[in-house]
Design a protein around this nucleic acid. Sequence first.
RNA 1: GGCCCGUUCGUCUAAUGGUUAGGACACCAGGUUUUCAUCCUGGCAACAGGGGUCCGAUUCCCCUACGGGCUACCA
Length: 511
Amino acid sequence: MENKKENQKEIRVRFAPSPTGELHIGGLRTALTDFLFVRKNRGKFILRIEDTDQKRIVPGAIERIIEMLEWAGIKIDEGVKFKNNKENTIWEVGDFGPYIQSERLKIYQEYVQKLLNEGKAYRCFCSPERLEKMRKTQQKRKEAPKYDRFCLRLTPKEIEEKIRKKEPYVIRFKIPEGKTSFEDLVYGKIEVNNDILDDPIILKSDGFPTYHLAMVVDDHLMKITHIFRGVEWLSSAPKHILLFEAFGWRATMPKLIHMPNILNKNRKKLSKREGSVSVLDFKNQGYPPAAIVNFIALLGWNPKTEQEIFTLDELIDQFDIQKMNRAGGVFDIDRLNWISAQHIKKMTINDLYENALPFLREKDFYKNWEKENKLENEEARKEYVKKVLKVERDRLEKFTQTGENNRFFFSDEINIIPDDLRWKNSSNEETKKNLSKAMETLNRLSEKEWELARIEKILLDVAGEKRGDLLFPLRAALTGQKKSPSPFEVAWVLGKDKTLSRIKNALSILE
RNA sequence: GGCCCGUUCGUCUAAUGGUUAGGACACCAGGUUUUCAUCCUGGCAACAGGGGUCCGAUUCCCCUACGGGCUACCA
C-alpha cells in the first residue's frame, strides 16, 4: 500500500536559475534533463526564479531565460512563464506560488524564526572584517575556514542589547554534530562528517535568504520530488539535508541528482573566455535548437545504443537517470557541427526555409539581391530561396552558412577568369564549342520544362564521354567559381534567362 | 591546505571477471562524382600508474598521480 502511494505521487521538478544574465549552456543542459525526466514520467516542469542576490540581478534576464527555454522546445508547465505566449509579459501560474523568490521573503523569515525558536539557528553579528580576519588566521594555520561560532556564545541579554542598538546581523544555521549521509541518484552514497561543515548563513542582513535556505523551503513547499543540479552543489548537499532534517522534512525531501560539469577543451569548467557559453550565442550562430538539444543531451548521458541523432521526443522516450554519467564532458564543437549538419539534412525545405531566412536577411548580399532583383512577387522570391536551400541543404552545418559559399545565386557580378573555364587539357576552342553547345541545348528547353532532372539529362546526353570538358566550363560560366554545386543544380536555380546570359557572357570573355 | 567527486582512443562514449576492448566525431587514405559537399570503404588511436583479491583483471578493493568542484551576507 505504502509503495502504491509512493508511485502515485506526481513528479515535480523545478529549474531554478538566477536572473543574472543570459542562460548558460550548462543551465540549458540542467533544464533539458529536468524536462526529459518530467515528460518521461508525466510530471510537471516548473520554472522558479532565484533572485535572492539583489546585487547580481540583471533586468530582463527572466524574459531572456524563458525565451531560450522556449527556443529549445522546453515547455514550462508551472511557475514563471509568458502570458499567452506574449513575450515580455511575465506571470506566474500554479498553486504553489509565488515562484519568484524575492516575492517570498515573508515565508523564509517565518521558517527562519521557527529554527531560531527551536535553537537550531542563531543570530550572528560578526562584521565582515572580523570574519575575513578569522579566515585568514585559519588559513595560515592550514585549517579549514569555518565560522568560529563566536556569536553562539552571546547571552540573551547581549543579543537583545545588540538588536536594540540596531546592529546588523545574519542568521546562521547551527550544524548539528554527527555524520550526514545521503544517496545521490547518480553519484551513489555519500557521507561526510558534520564537523567539516561551516554554519551557513541562511538569512542575510538585508532580510533575503541565501540559496541554502530558500531552496530547501521552496522545494518542500512546492512539493518538488527531484532536484537536478550541477555537481558544484554536491559539496553543500549535506547542509541541505541537515536543513530539511531540522524542519522535520527529511522523510519527504526530494531525491538528489547531481550532474557532471560541461568542460572546455582544457578540461576546465566551461567559461566565457573559451568561446560561446550562452544559449543565445548558439542560437545566433545559426544552430537548430534540435541540434543543441541533441548535443547537450549526449554530454553526460548516453542511451547505451549506437544511435547518435535524436529528436526531442526520442530523447524523452529513452531518457533514464540510470544512464547518466559521473565524469565531466568536454564541449566539442566539431561534434556539435556534425550533429547540427545531420539535423539540417533531415529538415524539410519548408522548415529549413523558415529557419534560415532570418539569418539570410542579415546578409548584405541577400539584402542587395532583394532590392535589385525584382522578382515578380513575394511568392517567386520565396520559391527561389527554397531552390537555393534545396541545393545547399547537404552542405550546411548552421543556418548562418546559407548562401555564403554560393553568392552567385544572389549576385550577377560573377568574376570569370578565362583559365578557370577550361577543364584540364581542354583547349580554348573546345571550351568555346562546348559552352555554345550547352547554350543551344538548354535553349531548347522551355521555361516550363526547366526542371532539374531534365536539365541534367539533356546536358549529359550532349556532353558525351568527356563530360568534364563541357560541365566544368559550364560551372565556371554560371558561378565564376571552380567549386560549387553541380552546374545542373545551379542552372536549375538560376532559371533559363540568367543561365543563358551567363553562358553568353562567358563566351564573350573567351573571345 | 581541508573536504567531496571523477579518470576507456585527441573528443563524446559502449561493453566485459576470460573480447582482435565496440561505435561516433575529428584526422588520414581510397572510392563515387565535372569540382566542392554529401555518400561509401578502409586506416590511425584508449582501459592513468602501482599494489592487492582471483586460475585470470580494463572490470572488484586499496594507495598514488592527475583532473574537477566546494571551502562568500553568489548561486
